[in-house]
């Protein structure tokens, strides 16, 4: 008998049907992601009902692919983990009920995982955590600075008061008539442009680690509108570069300030926007001179996947957390409340 521990995880919170297996909390065995981007492209964003329909079609296929690639069976698993929230309720429900069914069929322990905890834990597949650590979580739905003093504990020291960074990217991309998803498109254009427009930076009150991107988004839209009325030609590349400069400046400056104030050993960048090259570059430059290690996961671990859910789920499992057969999708699940759960 081997003493290795295997955990299978399912993630279906948005538009990716994902299954992964992780060994001994930190070793990635398989990571399968069935993306639906092509289906949602024509609608300019994720359509929840269509996402749910894809999940139910893809769920068992994705499970089978993950197991085949791993050379393992469900019997080899020590536990099953699943994203319980936050996310699209109809999408989450497919994963939650699938996970419950595997666990029930084989009478295995079941663990619910917070999607953002997953994004943070994606980094632990690359490098062991050293506490205290901070995580800058940036995605289509989230912009948060999360302080972790130990495994499984999450303290939000700053968060967006309006739009998430990724949301601002998507809206600006739509205004520039770029195809969905807009984030990577803006990042690509920004590389070819220059910061010719001085867009506002929302620093908020002194010492605040909160964010706000709706003012910036409006400034970009207004600037484009004014230019059009005056017959002035703005290069999309420059607009993208100027917009991205503002987002990246605020995110990286606040991240560095927080890292110093809390004296953290590591700064983990998590979430889909962590794939943004402008953000990666700015953070790398700013963290060069301070004692905090900057960790940015490879791109396949930044975007939604189940490996991150397995990584977070394995820790929760070993801390004794167990979900019951009544586990439900929880689209508004709060990260701090999740960290403080009793079961």
């Amino acid at each position: 008998m081997s003493n290795d521990q295997y955990l299978l995880a399912i993630e279906t919170s948005c538009d990716e049907t994902a299954v992964a297996i992780v060994k001994n909390e930190r070793e990635l065995v398989t990571n399968v992601v069935a993306s639906q981007i092509e289906s949602h492209k024509r609608f300019g964003g994720v359509v929840p009902e269509i996402a749910s329909r894809h999940h139910i079609e893809q769920m068992t296929i994705t499970l089978e692919e993950a197991l085949e690639k791993s050379g393992l069976t469900i019997d080899d698993m020590d536990a099953i983990a699943v994203t319980e929230g936050p996310g699209l309720v109809g999408a989450l429900l497919v994963g939650v009920n699938a996970a419950k069914s595997i666990a029930f069929a084989k009478q295995k322990p079941l663990v619910g995982v917070h999607h953002i905890a997953g994004h943070i834990y994606a980094n632990r597949l690359e490098k062991e955590f050293e506490f205290p650590l901070l995580s800058l979580v940036v995605s289509g739905g989230h912009t948060e600075l999360v302080l972790m003093r130990e495994h499984g504990s999450f303290e939000i020291i700053g968060e967006t008061r309006d739009d998430a960074a990724g949301e601002a990217y998507d809206k600006v991309a739509r205004t520039l008539k770029l195809p969905y998803p807009g984030g990577p498109q803006i990042d690509r254009l920004a590389k070819e442009g220059e910061e010719t427009i001085d867009f506002p930076r929302a620093w908020l009150e002194d010492g605040s680690y909160d964010f706000s991107f709706s003012g910036l988004k409006s400034a970009v839209i207004n600037r484009l509108h004014n230019a059009k009325q005056k017959g002035e030609v703005l290069r999309d590349e420059d607009v993208a570069a100027s917009f991205q400069a503002s987002v990246v400046d605020v995110l990286s400056t606040k991240a560095v300030r927080a890292a110093k104030e809390y004296g953290v050993k590591q700064m983990i960048v998590a979430g889909g926007v962590a794939a943004n090259s402008g953000l990666r570059k700015a953070l790398q430059e700013k963290f060069e001179d301070i004692d905090t290690d900057l960790l940015i996961p490879p791109i396949h671990l930044c975007t939604d996947n189940a490996a991150m859910i397995a990584a977070a789920g394995a820790v929760a499992y070993n801390q004794g957390h167990r979900a019951g057969w009544d586990l439900n999708a929880n689209p508004g699940l709060d990260l701090e409340a999740y960290g403080n759960r009793k079961t």
Partner: peptide
């Protein structure tokens, strides 16, 4: 979908 996710995944398992 709740019924199918449960039935299909349990049968598959």
């Amino acid at each position: 979908r709740i019924g199918l996710a449960t039935a299909k995944t349990m049968a598959w398992t």
